[in-house]
Computed example of a mutant assay.
Amino acid sequence: MRAVYAARQDPGSPLTGLETGDLSDLPDVPADWVPVQVRAAALNHHDLWSLRGVGLRSEQLPMILGTDAVGLDPDGRTVLVHAVISSPDWVGDETLDPRRSLLSEKFPGTLAERVWVPARNLVPAPASLTLAEAACLPTAYLTAYRMLTTAAGVRPGQRVLIQGAGGGVATAALLLARAAGAHVVVTSRSEAKLEQARAFGAQETVHTSTRVAPVDVVIETVGQATWEHSLRSLRPGGVVVVAGATSGAAPSAELNRVFFRSLRVIGSTMGTAAELAQLVAMIDTCGIRPVIDSQYGFDDDAEIHRAFRRLDSGEAFGKVVLVR
C-alpha cells in the first residue's frame, strides 16, 4: 500500500526521515476495524513531532503518519476519521482513557491509500465542505472546538484571546469563536499573519506580548513565548485553555497570579467522536469554511515533500492539505 511514513527520526532535521512509497509491513489492526479509502488528509505538527522522535518510539518505525482524513467507508459514504483510539472496553470520553492513542502512534495513520479504524471512529462528513476542507476538521478544528466549548464554555459577547495567528488550531479557534459570537483578539509576531487574521474576522490584532484589555478566555497553544502574556491578559476569574506548547514549556506557572485573581488553567486535548459530530453540525449550520493555506497532490512524491516543507517552515496560515 502506498503511504507517507516516518522511516527515521531526527530531532534537528525531521524531514530527513520522511519517506513515501509502498509499505507492506504494517502493524496488525483488529479484525473488526473498518477500512476507509482516503481522499484527502491535512498535515499537523504531530507529524513533525513523530519525525523528531516525540511520542513515537524508534522501534515502531516505519510508521504511517497522519491523524486527519476524509474518505469513503465500505458502503461508499463520505466520512471523517476520528483519530483518538480508545481501549475496546472504554466507556465515556475517549480522551480520558489512560491507554488511548492517536493514529500514527500505535496504529498506522491516515497518510495512505487506506486507513483502518473502529467503526465508532467514523463520523459523516459535512455536506457543505469540499474534501480538502473536511480533511481539516478531525484534529485542529476538533481541538479548537473542545477548547472553546467543553473547556471554556465561551458565550456570546465574551472576549477571547488567541495566541499565535496562523497555526491550525489558532485559525480554527478564530473562525469558531467568531461564529459563537465572541469578540476575538489575535496575536502574532508577523504583521502579514495579523492582516490575514483581520480578514477572517478578528476584531483586534496585536503583536505578541502587547498589552490588551482584559479577556475572559485565552486559547493557548504556544507555551513559553506567550504564557506570561496569557495569564496577565485574563480578567479576574478568567480561564486559559492549554492544548500545546510549541515554543516550549512555560518557564513559570505564576501561581501567585493564578490564585490571587482566581484564574482557571484547563488542559485540553483533541476531542471525542461525539464532539466531532457536534462540530460538523456547527460547520453546516454556521457556514464555516476551514482556512486552507495550500493544497498538494497526494499521489505525487515531490508534492508531498513540498507540503511537509511548507508545514515545517512555520509560514503557513491555516491548514496544509493533501488531496487525491
Rank of each mutant, 00 (worst) to 15 (best):
T78C: 08
V123Q: 09
P74I: 08
W33Q: 02
Q196I: 07
A199G: 05
L142M: 02
V91H: 14
P156F: 13
A307S: 06
V206Y: 11
V4I: 15
G153H: 12
A250L: 14
V34F: 05
R235T: 10
T205M: 06
A245I: 01
P98N: 09
W33P: 07
V84M: 14
P126H: 07
V185K: 03
H305A: 05
A202R: 02
A144M: 05
R159D: 08
V186A: 05
T95L: 10
E19I: 00
D284P: 11
A172F: 03
D28C: 06
A316F: 00
D284T: 12
V169E: 00
D25N: 13
A307T: 01
V212C: 08
R324C: 02
I292C: 03
K319P: 00
G223T: 01
V29H: 10
V242R: 06
G71N: 09
T78I: 14
V320F: 01
R310Y: 00
T246E: 10
R261D: 11
A170N: 04
L26T: 02
D299Y: 12
R159S: 14
P11N: 07
A127T: 15
S50M: 14
G153W: 07
P118R: 08
A140Q: 05
H183C: 03
Y296N: 01
V91D: 11
R120M: 05
P98H: 06
S86H: 13
V215W: 11
L96S: 12
R155N: 10
L279F: 10
T187C: 07
E254F: 14
L103A: 08
H229G: 02
P27C: 02
S188L: 03
V240N: 04
L80G: 07
L194W: 07
R189L: 01
G244A: 09
L48D: 00
G297R: 15
